[in-house]
Design a protein around this nucleic acid. Structure first.
Lengths: 193, 193
DNA sequence: CGCGGGTTTGATGATGCTCAAGCCCGGTGG
DNA sequence: CCACCGGGCTTGAGCATCATCAAACCCGCG
């Protein structure tokens, strides 16, 4: 059981206590997906029907800005959850798309199964409370960094914080995540090297 | 009971079912505070010991940037929760301060009481899960707006979205919340009027 | 009445964007 | 196996946006 989806199982057990039956029950609600590089799990305009857990690989959330340019707002690597939570919560059309950055193994928790899961295994209410609380904490910090640091310092900071991850993604995704153009990122790289 | 803290009571009942005894139990964990304009509920460097619910008035979260300038990252008006969630979750020193923008009535839920509350009234686990899920949804949207809109459009958008709220706060707070200088905000106002 | 925090004004200049062109490299089809 | 194609990265010139700094002003509060 525990080696079926090791990242997810570990993540669960990091935050809540579950016996083997409960774990088995939880996993029975999760829908495993193999998604290949560049394929989409959600398209803008659709309803976000699932909350996605990245077991392996990397997802990103993006939208098309007023000028028609892709803007990446989040990445989800191993053991992160990702969804357009406005769309997911209200089952309304999504403003974002979700795409696999690389080949990924994902666990999808569908909206209409979530309430059954929460009823079947009440600890999951606590699990998600903790997951979301941490997500809010992270977004508060991110907000601080984006206000405090210049574009150049943002880049330096990101590279120092996630040196291995920078290798995994194309520059244009990182540029839009950090809030600037690929041209400017290219200029920064030259300047720094 | 229900008219003691009407905003909080309504908010609870909007998301979970509680009978009168449970409501009473919940309220017994909340510490009411009357805070006057400009006083601080949390100072950078301290540990954030409480999660704050705004019953009446307005709080803001802020930090001092590298140049020594105050930057506002969030407001919490009636029926919003606010805390430095990194500090609160880990009981580690806060990066942010929290200040009353105007005279406010606040309910504080202390860190060490929260677990007792969650044990006493398990529905509260669900309540906070929903509250945090909505907070994540809001921050995803905010991220989209800040990437998509120019500073000028940000300002227009904010004023159109919260016309009454703009009246309640000084310009310099709004400027830093929107990510620009008071001087530039002043210029924008003149230009638009 | 005077003080001081907050807002306005304007000049100057840096940061980072736009646009256009060229280049590099990996994948695909002939 | 090679040639080509195209996506992504680089380069550079010109420019817009918005910050900085300094000064004056306004007005609410003590």
């Amino acid at each position: 059981m525990s080696n079926l989806f090791p990242e997810f199982t570990n993540h669960l057990r990091r935050f809540i206590k579950l016996d083997d039956d409960e774990l088995k029950a939880v996993l029975s609600f999760m829908r495993p997906l193999s998604v290949k590089k560049k394929s989409f799990l959600l398209n803008e305009g659709q309803i976000c029907r699932s909350n996605f857990f990245t077991e392996k690989g990397c997802l990103r959330m993006l939208f098309i800005d007023a000028k028609g340019v892709e803007q990446t707002t989040q990445f989800a690597i191993e053991h992160w959850w990702l969804a357009d939570y406005m769309s997911f919560t209200n089952q309304s059309p999504a403003q974002f798309s979700i795409q696999a950055v690389e080949h990924s193994e994902v666990l999808a928790l569908d909206y209409d199964l979530q309430e059954k899961l929460l009823a079947a295994v009440p600890q999951m209410e606590q699990y998600f409370r903790i997951v979301f609380q941490k997500a809010v904490a992270a977004s508060q910090l991110r907000m601080m960094y984006t206000n405090d640091l210049s574009r150049e310092d943002m880049y330096r900071f990101f590279v120092r914080s996630f040196p291995e991850f920078v290798q995994r993604i194309p520059q244009y995704m990182l540029a839009s995540y950090l809030g600037f153009t690929p041209e400017y990122l290219s200029e920064l790289r030259r300047k720094i090297a």
